[in-house]
Design a protein around this nucleic acid. Sequence first.
DNA 1: CGGGCCTTTGATTACCCTCAATTTTCGTGG
DNA 2: CCACGAAAATTGAGGGTAATCAAAGGCCCG
Lengths: 225, 225
Amino acid sequence: MLEPSQEDLPGIHSVPVVERFYPAGTLIMEEGQVATRSLVMVTAGWAISYKSMQNGQRVVVDFPLRGDLINHGSPAGRAYRSVLAQTDLVTFEINIERQGLLSGYSPFLARSIMSLVARNYGIAMEHLANVARRRPLERAAYLLLEIAYRLERAETLKHNRFQFPFTQSDLADALGLTAIHTNRVLRDLREAELIVVRNGVVELVDKPGLIDMTFFDPAYLSYGG
Amino acid sequence: MLEPSQEDLPGIHSVPVVERFYPAGTLIMEEGQVATRSLVMVTAGWAISYKSMQNGQRVVVDFPLRGDLINHGSPAGRAYRSVLAQTDLVTFEINIERQGLLSGYSPFLARSIMSLVARNYGIAMEHLANVARRRPLERAAYLLLEIAYRLERAETLKHNRFQFPFTQSDLADALGLTAIHTNRVLRDLREAELIVVRNGVVELVDKPGLIDMTFFDPAYLSYGG
DNA sequence: CGGGCCTTTGATTACCCTCAATTTTCGTGG
DNA sequence: CCACGAAAATTGAGGGTAATCAAAGGCCCG
């Protein structure tokens, strides 16, 4: 990501950053609520970001990882989705007034935030494309492959295997499928020797094959600078 | 939207705003290209914003309307989608360096932009939910109802009827359906006396019925302030 | 007046959802 | 450590729905 220049330093150091811990199960943010915190960045643990619909359905918008902001997109108004701590979660939070952040307080922070927001937007659009225009097998493969790449960036991926403490029902709500069909899709991926998902662990068995199948291009996961 | 305060005025007046015209068919922005303009806001005409996928599919991300920014989400990096002028299009563009805009140049503009970006994020997330978790009939109804509400805000909706200069194929790519099935869905909506789409004109025949059917709540279309 | 794109309809297929039941896993308390 | 119950994962059967394949009609533009 960006490095602060010499002139940025005073602004940065005067920003009140606090570390916070949320136990597993905490609803960190709720859809429709006015945003009270300025900025929240995940540093450790797993979260799930979702929308609840009036028709009883749920849509998982994202699984925010280490380094991701979880309150972008609602800087001035109401949260457009809920965020739940799936495991114990650690965050850094900046609690000064947000518009100050973006206008004069610290140009470095303003730039960084805009980069993070832009990247999240790109990720969200790929997610939309994934749900709208890929078949379930490729769709599931794409989602897990993207998470693996993001974990790689966050330096928490080893041997193409990672913890993934979510249920198949959570995955289904991220894929726009039923839980039952998601189960069958995961079986197909396992039998095709592409991905094994078992007991909360995801293993990318054939990463090149997955990339071929999904035309995965990680360019959108980089930070704009 | 927001009103500038007295202290905002000098900053605003020093920002170089230009009006631009794009003839129908102009590709205003292309996916993957580095953003060269700072900010582009639609003031008249129709555009379509889409992603092209490697599997040959296309996903329509949004139909940007009067008052919408069409380069949010890529302020520092590369555009995550293409934008095509569907009709002749008029924009206002701000061509100063973007990070200047957001850090000290004009606090009023910074706030306004953040509000617009936040709103667009909310719209995008509703779109995701729509594609992921609504059935085609409700999905099509929701999309057209949303556009009607947004046009209402832009003060270009009359008698629940509006021009919509796109093909059923465009609509299909926004709904995640085939063009053929989209045609059947539109027939169903017509026969249910809910919406009539014909010759590039959309008429909401039974707006209350549509709102009931889709649980439509326009809260996410407001500006955060 | 063509020609091409768009719209519309029909027939068939493939896929995903629904309903139902069993097995496995996991957390909790005995 | 084991027993129990609840939640999650898994499998089967069947039906509904959207995709696919095919073709005809309408509309606009040159």
